[in-house]
Amino acid sequence: MSQITSLMTDDHRHCDQTFARAETAAAKGKWDEASAALEQFASELEGHFDTEESFLFPKFEAATGMTEGPTKVMRGEHAEMRSALTRMRDALANKDKDDYAGEAETLLILMQQHNMKEENILYPMCDSQLAGSDVAAGLSERLHARA
């Protein structure tokens, strides 16, 4: 697996684990713990989106001249996931276990089909288009700075 793909895939998996922690706590009715885990997940997810939207995607767009291509689709899906996250927060605020479970399941599938597109298609394209640049080093620095 090449550098950009590997770094960004690892960050996806890291976010998944925090997501699962929030899901487990909510299912057990441990609302404070669920809330703390969900906020940590939200911050990790937002950090990941920000790294892509303000750093990786512009580099890819500059290298390929494609601004209406895959990065546009991925930005659109980020917006969908932000809405899903808001609905999870609402369910948590209402302490509604079933609603939280349903919204969490929805975000999980939405997020993973998005991750599949990135990990199987977009990141390998970034690796081939941005080979030899310092993008991977920059990504590593950004991702580790917020770890």
Binding site: E68, G69, T71, K72, V73, G76, K117, L122, M125, Q129
Partner: peptide, 10 residues
Amino acid sequence: MIPDGQTLSY
């Protein structure tokens, strides 16, 4: 070869 990125869209 870069695939057309719009293939990822809805």
